[in-house]
Design a protein around this nucleic acid. Structure first.
Lengths: 239, 239
DNA sequence: ACAATTTTCGACGATCTTTCGGATATATTC
DNA sequence: GAATATATCCGAAAGATCGTCGAAAATTGT
């Protein structure tokens, strides 16, 4: 795991080693949120579980969560309805397990890719761009996550909430890094800046999911993130 | 209705009268989207309809749409289940009628309030701030709209979609106004700018709805909108 | 006050969800 | 490799919610 090598004199009152360690810890944590409690013992079951998840994703994306029927998902997975209940308490439980899996994969992918980037700005661009790209590559999952689950009231009562909170936490952490490194001026409200970044990218992703516009989601997300970061870098220092 | 009085020489190729007329027309249209088709004949029915809407809002906000039962809503409204079906085809139909009503009211409120503002910047700040304030004042409705309905797949298949599209249209129109008036530099991608503004404000609203943070939603939305507009005004002109 | 129209409601059938007990498959032990 | 224990699967039936229908009640117009 990369650790920033400090060659310049430390700014007063900031421990870069501690900061780097925090970053590593955050990266590790987000990619390793505990999975669901019940571990299946037999290989057969693990295959069945995968078949259920993949079937559920297809059906949910096609019909929307509320209009999907458990029986359809079970049929699509090639098992009986009652077997499905051996794996998931109910439809909601199933629906909320899907994003957790994928989010873990996304975070793990980012953890590996970000090793090549050293500046906070590059990392931030990578992070937000990757999230848009992940949505484009897994558009069935993204429909489910961005259009049905993320904003839902119930997220706040679920384990999934932690993963969603992690998403914002990464942005905040990188904004602080950039401030320390002088990528943008001191004294801004980083929660507000994070809202702008995350809100803007999500807005682009959601519009793309609903209307397939703009055509090139990857380019659009790079453009919007870089534009915002340019604007932030040009702001007068506050405080 | 206010019409901009032109005292300065017109910039080449721009008809300010036409632009002002378009703005008036847009304002009128958004506040007067046609209501639902079926008109009730008796006064009693109109009261019942209101009781249903108000009961549905409470129940949906409390339980979430998918967990709400038609029977509960009917009981809350003091009518029988089957009577409710006389008014709404099904739960979805009911859920999607609520936002339409409120959005109309919001647009009408904006139409009246914006008459006092003449610059595009002031109008934009007013618009986005009012939308956050409307969410704060009608938080049950806002939970339903922002957390369950707006991002939902099904919006794209409903009448409601027009009202949602109107919301963005107003922002785009005001951004063009501001460009003509020199409030910010020429040549930017206004769809992108609109995504930033709308996405950021929505993000703040959603966070407030879920976690009641930041405490003062009104102030937070003013701050974030003004910060973004300042940044946009400071951008170099693109070409 | 009477007829026509509109609105309400209880009862019922249809659809979907969830549970339960036993049958079948896999793993473990000797 | 047979016996035992455990894990997985399924059919059937119970439970819950949705949505319909015809008759009763309320309202309106004359």
């Amino acid at each position: 795991m990369l650790k920033a090598v400090v060659t310049e004199p430390l700014p007063a009152g900031v421990d870069l080693d501690t900061a780097a360690a925090e970053w590593d810890a955050l990266l590790h944590r987000i990619a390793h949120r505990p999975k669901r409690a019940s571990e299946r013992k037999q290989d057969r079951s693990k295959r069945t579980e995968q078949r259920i998840l993949s079937a559920a994703l297809r059906v949910f994306a096609r019909d929307g969560i509320s209009r999907s029927r458990i029986a359809d998902i079970a049929a699509e997975a090639g098992i009986s309805t009652s077997t499905l209940y051996e794996y998931y308490k109910n439809k909601e439980d199933l629906a909320y397990d899907l994003p957790r899996n994928h989010l873990s994969n996304f975070f793990e992918g980012f953890r590996l890719a970000v090793a090549a980037k050293s500046s906070a700005r590059d990392r931030l661009v990578l992070y937000l761009t990757m999230s848009a790209d992940f949505a484009r590559e897994h558009s069935e999952w993204a429909r489910l996550f961005y259009l049905e689950i993320w904003p839902s009231v119930s997220v706040s009562e679920t384990d999934l909430r932690h993963s969603v909170d992690d998403f914002a936490r990464v942005v905040i952490c990188l904004l602080r890094q950039g401030e320390r490194d002088g990528d943008w001026p001191h004294g801004q409200n980083w929660y507000q800046t994070a809202s702008i970044l995350i809100g803007s990218v999500n807005q682009v992703i959601i519009t793309w999911l609903l209307y397939r516009r703009p055509r090139n989601l990857t380019k659009a997300s790079i453009d919007i993130v870089e534009r915002i970061l340019d604007m932030i870098a040009a702001e007068p220092a506050a405080g």
